[in-house]
Design a protein around this nucleic acid. Structure first.
Lengths: 230, 230
DNA sequence: GTCTATACACAGATAGAC
DNA sequence: GTCTATCTGTGTATAGAC
């Protein structure tokens, strides 16, 4: 699969995620019309991502956000109860979206090598399509309270465990070498993470996400595959 | 080389870095006695790293810092002119220290494979010995002004270029495969970075820095080495 | 549903006694 | 060289008109 193909599927979901934001938080917000809420949540989130990328969530003031969205302070506060809650909403909704996409693209009946390739690619492609969410989740996780932070950490763990399961399955089938699969999974995650943490670097060098995915796969396979497979 | 061996050398430098902080900023600070200054800078920096690890530099208040160092607000401000300057001092001094250590351990006359191993290890070992500095530099770089931020980025680039040079040298000697060395270097950096960004994870799993270094080397060598070398 | 004006708390920074 | 007390600006959040 190439990125453009993946992107088409993702784009077909449309503003799904902002509708979800509206519905999940309906009790806490004072806006009643879905259409207005969805439109403005999208505007607010985009502004948060943009400002936060420059200076971080703590340093972003509500006045910054007001300026960037062209909404007044009073208006903003009808969409969420506090700045802290806004942070929690973004995290919660991002996590939910990411989980859903992974679920949708995972096929546990494929042969291990194919699963490995697919999982690595989907993660990279999704982090490309939703880079602001990934970047935000990583950089601002420490601003969350203990409960929400744990949700983030357990997501990190579960995507890693998915990789471990695939590597173990492949080892049992004699396709992958016998290695410390947990450590291999960590390293694969580190490579995936670099894509969205250092996007500016890869962009400057004109490396596409397809190039990068190919390289990560080459790296991983040369290490994991049994010699007879090469 | 093992980590304990490296650590012994590093420890022998003692409070060198805090003496440097004092000397480089002597004009801007109101403290005159080196011994007092060095002692308190160490206390201040440690507190900053500790608080910042929990909630980030922006969220750290001067009152937090006062509490954590057992120094009064007034006292703190005799060591630096503003909170922003404190940030800049930490960054500048950290960068200088890191550069010095890399210089000291790099030997461009060794054979490429040995250089590669040594550069990867030294980076990992140093990030282990000075984890707070590395973590801080990465996470708080965006709070710097444009000029200081560029310094950080150019450091990132120069350590990467050092790797590229080694890989090219090895390719010319027929030891390494012909690959996109820049991308390989990026990926090696990503693996190194994961060590200090996710320290909690590796600690929980009882992976030592020597274990991790060995794994990164294995991963890298299986990808880069020409087959006849394996 | 959105706006302006404002309350209130708390942050960074300094003055001046010891 | 360190402290306490205090100034001043700015940030979050709300009240109430439109």
């Amino acid at each position: 699969m190439k990125y453009t193909e993946f992107k088409k599927i993702i784009d077909s979901f449309g503003s799904e995620i902002y509708r979800e934001v509206f519905q999940e938080n309906q009790e806490n917000i004072r806006i009643k019309k879905e259409k207005t809420a969805v439109k403005n949540f999208e505007k607010i989130f985009d502004a948060v991502f943009q400002i936060t990328y420059e200076k971080g969530f703590q340093a972003m003031t509500m006045r910054d956000l007001s300026r960037c969205t062209n909404m007044s302070l009073g208006s903003l506060y009808t969409y969420f109860a506090s700045k802290e809650e806004l942070l929690a909403i973004i995290h919660r909704q991002g996590a939910s979206m990411i989980r859903n996409v992974f679920e949708k693209f995972h096929n546990p009946d494929d042969p291990p090598l194919e699963q490995l390739r697919s999982v690595i690619k989907v993660h990279l492609f999704l982090s490309e399509a939703s880079r602001p969410w990934f970047y935000f989740t990583f950089m601002e996780a420490k601003n969350l309270n203990a409960e929400h932070r744990n949700t983030v950490l357990s997501m990190e763990e579960s995507t890693e465990n998915r990789l471990v399961a695939i590597l173990e399955q492949g080892e049992r089938q004699g396709i992958f070498r016998r290695l410390n699969h947990q450590l291999t999974a960590s390293i694969i995650k580190a490579m995936q993470q670099d894509w969205y943490l250092k996007r500016w670097k890869y962009k400057k060098r004109k490396i596409s996400v397809d190039d990068y995915a190919g390289y990560v796969l080459g790296f991983t396979e040369s290490f994991c595959l049994n010699e007879k497979q090469l």
